[in-house]
Amino acid sequence: MRVVVRAFARFREMAGEEATLELPEGSTLADLLEEVVSSHPGLKKALSGPDGPIGGRAMVLLNRRGADPSDVLEEGDEVAILPPFSGG
């Protein structure tokens, strides 16, 4: 299946603006993120944290709403990856 991934703000410089990834059926959002960081070392470094390779250092939207890493993806899904903006 094909899933469209868009990166925003500083993640764009690390992962490119938009890519269509081919993934096996049954892949989860976590699988997709692993796939993305494996081909973009800069992004992998930015996201690495104590909680694992993704470490919560990215806000990820699946089909325009918040998502869980265990969510199973479907053909045509849209994923947005943006840095966490939490300051005020």
Binding site: A9, R10, G49, D51, G55, G56, R57, M59, L61, R65, G66, A67, D68, L82, P83, P84, F85, S86
Partner: peptide, 25 residues
């Protein structure tokens, strides 16, 4: 240098937790 903004109208738009269900570290 970056930031974000949205306007949440109860009952009409997604709420903040629809968009960001978990706090970042």
């Amino acid at each position: 240098l970056d930031g974000q903004a949205t306007t949440i109208v109860p009952g009409m738009t997604p709420c903040l937790r629809c968009i960001f269900p978990r706090p970042p570290p």
